[in-house]
Design a protein around this nucleic acid. Sequence first.
DNA 1: GGATGTGAACGACTTCACAGCG
DNA 2: CGCTGTGAAGTCGTTCACATCC
Lengths: 225, 225
Amino acid sequence: MSKAEGDPAVGGGTGGEPKLSRASVQRFSLYLRHLERWIQEGMNVVSSSQLGDALGINDAQVRKDLAYLGSLGQPGIGYYTRELITALRHRLGVDRTWAAVIVGAGNLARALMRHRGFAEQGFQFVGLFDADPQKIGQIVEGIEVQPPAKMLEIIAAAKAELAIVAVPADTAQQVADALVAAGIKGILNFAPVMLRLPPHISLVAVDLAVQLEQLAFLVHLSKHE
Amino acid sequence: MSKAEGDPAVGGGTGGEPKLSRASVQRFSLYLRHLERWIQEGMNVVSSSQLGDALGINDAQVRKDLAYLGSLGQPGIGYYTRELITALRHRLGVDRTWAAVIVGAGNLARALMRHRGFAEQGFQFVGLFDADPQKIGQIVEGIEVQPPAKMLEIIAAAKAELAIVAVPADTAQQVADALVAAGIKGILNFAPVMLRLPPHISLVAVDLAVQLEQLAFLVHLSKHE
DNA sequence: GGATGTGAACGACTTCACAGCG
DNA sequence: CGCTGTGAAGTCGTTCACATCC
């Protein structure tokens, strides 16, 4: 699983007429990726069923999702790829740069920093922290590992709003608290614990062990029936 | 994000009377982790509300989930921790050992292999593959990197049923096909593509880029309202 | 009293089906 | 005609509320 937690309601505040489900947002990212691939290949128009097929979901679902961006579709034609991409980026908030820091200079941090595509999508890693004195000062993927004490300074200087927590379970909560104190607005948590955060801080949690267990369960299940 | 795909219906075949949702299974893993922690601390009895608080979910939800394991609860008392753990492990299929292979000897593979806890939970990594000639022969976390050509042999020899795909998007599908041909039963996919697999192969997909984008969106949203 | 198990209500998400428009 | 946008229906998951039992 993956699992996400942030504001309970993703939609508007008091009486949001349109409603944007959390599931839709997940799909927005997927649409965007496919569209970016397709426009490279010269596909200037796409239909809801093409997108649906590519993602393995119903075409009506796709239209419902895209309708949330406005009435971009052309009856009888489809959607103009370029237009969709622009609208999606804007809605997702990725038509700008996001500065992010990572806490925990392990292999997961390396994997994330190395991930080509993050940079293109506007995510910039501006800080890497670790409590291990052995690691402090090392250069990892072009960034120097800093001690936790420098968090506030570096986060403020780079105006970082996102943080990735990739430390063991037992220190994750205190790391999260420190990040919040340093002014971080959202946390992507890989530690296998449920973080307690102030309500105005967004949270997305990814628990790799749970995912592997779920896979085992599915296989287990497919055998016992 | 996290996202999972496998058989559309997780429950039984023809007319499954009880129903086990995919969400429940995700929570099973979380229950199990907390319970294992708690029994170490000497907590022999737990209530649905304790579990609910720990996970941030409703207590009725917890009872509904646990009821699926049978009527283990003692009215007025709660659940016996040890008993719950045993039942959960059994239901999840983690009361046995699972042999798994990883394709893509990058940092993500390292992170996963290093993850303490996988071994304790019965997951054993018995093979590591990479197409890069430079990497073949290297020892990563105690396992030698093998060429893809050896997949069939190694998977069969170790009776591996699970595979983790941690390769770039453009080769993920062909890697998946090879894994299926080699007899793998389930795939945990980290590549940002939707894998097309035969219906009897289970799939769990984790898309890290989507998760980061979702976090950005949540923060973006909390500012524009 | 305290906590479980569970039908019923509720809410969220998905699919259907079709009117409408280029 | 083909494809969008969307009300209506359907499905799935969560929460409520309460009878039940120790």
